[in-house]
Structure formats: C-alpha cells, structure tokens
Amino acid sequence: MDKVNIGAVITTPGSALNYKTGSWRTLKPVLDEAKCKFCNICWQLCPDSAIEQADAKAKKPIKIDYDYCKGCGICVQECPFNALEMVEEEK
C-alpha cells in the first residue's frame, strides 16, 4: 500500500506544480518580445500563474510558462500593446 498521510493532509505546499496543465491547450499565446512594454498586466490577470513577470529595468519581457498555460487567451485579449497572439498548438 502506498504510504498516505492520515486524514488526507498534504504536507508538501504547492505540490500541484507536479501537475502540468500545459497539455490542456489547443491554442497557445505567443509573445512578440519587441512589443512587450513590461506592464505585467498579463502576469496579473493569468488565472494559472503561468506568466513570469517582466522586468522593466532589465528590459526583460514577460515569459509564458507553457508547462502550465492552459491557453485561455486572457493575456492576448488584455495586452494593451498587442504583444501577444494566439496560434494553433503544434501537435
């Protein structure tokens, strides 16, 4: 029998990271780095914490984590600079 914690207590915080939701995607957001103005609105609105924050000082644009991005398209819809677009997921 697998060892399970009594009472179904989960003792490893954030262990959901082991569950990669990227495979759910049918469309994926793709960033045109040149257009990213580091505003981080997409980062703030992503329901899946699947966007790494941009760093304006370092001129580092946001980065999408495709391991978890479910392809909802909110980032594309909300980007004020049209820096993101949805493309067909390659299978």
């Binding site: 990271l17 082991n18 329901p47 899946d48 914490s49 790494e52 984590d65 479910k70």
Partner: peptide
C-alpha cells in the same frame, strides 16, 4: 514559473477561470 506565488500553477481550474 512564478515560484513565489502562494496559489501555484498546476491547479485544475478551467482555462480562463475568473
């Protein structure tokens, strides 16, 4: 991956969950 999030990736909410 934004590792400092207290609510992490890998949850099973629908895509676009408000």
């Amino acid at each position: 991956m934004a590792s400092d999030e207290l609510f992490t990736s890998g949850h099973r909410g629908c895509a676009g969950c408000g």
